[in-house]
Computed example of a mutant assay.
Amino acid sequence: MNEAFERAMAAFEPAHLPLAVGFSGGADSTALLAACASAWPGQVIAFHVHHGLQAAADDFERHCAAVCECLGVPLLVHRVDARHAPGDSPEDAARRARYEAFAAMARSDSTLGTVRSIALGHHADDQVETLLLALSRGAGLPGLAAMPAHARRHGLDIHRPLLGVPGAAIREWLRGVDLPWIEDPSNGDERYTRNRIRAVLLPALERSFPQFRTTFARSIGHAAQAQQLLGELAAQDLGAVGDPPRIAGLQALSRARQANVLRHWLMQAHGCAPSAAQLEQLLDQLRACTTRGHRIHLKVGSGHVERQGDRLHWYNFRPSPKASR
């Protein structure tokens, strides 16, 4: 079974060396760190994020330091405040803090030089959990595409070489090389949706559809390919309607293409992801915008979309009345 892990690592080619590995001390990141350190000796550094959310966080850090000493890998630790704001998802808040910490560590002075690539230990079970979470929330193609094997974020090349490897295969490989790992106690807390999926749904899928990891991965790939095509179409349409977009140019497109280009514009230009309800309301306003005096002012994401003249603008604050027309 651990042949799957070895095949995945043999196929892994990081974009740049030296390579950082996101290292929590859990089984997945421990196996990834050990395999990377063996493949590129002297060119791997471990990045550990101390979230400060659990009493055991200091123990996690000490464990990671001991493993890194055993492997001969330097360890960089970054402490963050990952507490979530009211109404925010604790998992999303911790994820954002983690990626920001990775970027900060990559910018810091390293004994190995500038780090531009990081490998993360997400595996096939994590990918299925991400897909099921997206389905449970009614996500569109970006959500159904789950996690990409390679992405760019905060100036870093992010690699996930283990997305085709079941979690059980990773643990089997670790036992074969006699490396210790820690289990995060929060992984058993079924207040978190992802943990309920892991504890209840994955075993049921295993019993009913033993090949579900492979077939789900195929669907994820189809969704990712379709999303890439939509992104390319949105970039073309945005080039035609302008940035910020002209209302008349948007109205010449079908409603589906309007939605696609507006999502693209809001995300690329402003880092804003509208909800389905907000986008539908904006599309309705665009359709109704047939006179010069028609006013558009809608909450979208953390800001507002306003009509100014013949174009739409997005603000993270309400502009002064003099600026609005």
Rank of each mutant, 00 (worst) to 15 (best):
G176K: 09
P14R: 02
T214M: 04
Q268T: 12
C64Y: 03
V261S: 12
Q225K: 13
P321T: 12
D58T: 15
E190F: 02
H154A: 12
V44I: 11
D81P: 01
R95H: 08
N195D: 13
D59P: 07
H48L: 04
G87H: 05
E206K: 03
A224S: 11
Q281S: 15
Q211W: 05
A39I: 06
F5R: 01
A223W: 11
A57E: 09
P86H: 07
A168L: 10
T290E: 15
Y315K: 09
L179M: 10
P166N: 02
G176R: 13
Q211L: 07
P18V: 10
G167W: 02
A223K: 12
A169Q: 10
R318D: 12
L250R: 05
G239Y: 03
A11G: 14
G293E: 09
L133T: 15
I220F: 04
A273P: 04
H123E: 10
W265Y: 15
G140N: 00
S29M: 03
R83G: 11
A199G: 01
D109N: 03
D28G: 02
A235C: 04
R79H: 14
A235P: 08
M1N: 04
A31Q: 02
L282H: 06
D92S: 01
Q278H: 15
T291F: 04
L266Q: 02
V300E: 10
L120K: 00
D178I: 04
S110Y: 01
E3D: 09
Q228F: 10
A4M: 09
E306P: 09
H84L: 06
G293F: 02
G26K: 08
A146V: 05
S29D: 07
E183R: 13
S324M: 13
A217V: 10
Q251K: 14
H264E: 13
I118P: 13
Y192V: 05
A235Q: 09
D59F: 09
L201G: 09
R191V: 02
T111E: 15
H264A: 14
Q278S: 15
G301L: 08
N260Y: 06
A82Y: 12
D28N: 02
I197K: 14
Q127W: 08
S117D: 01
D59C: 11
H150Q: 06
P161I: 04
E190D: 10
D28V: 00
L141N: 08
L144N: 14
S110H: 03
A276V: 09
L238N: 05
I182F: 13
A217R: 13
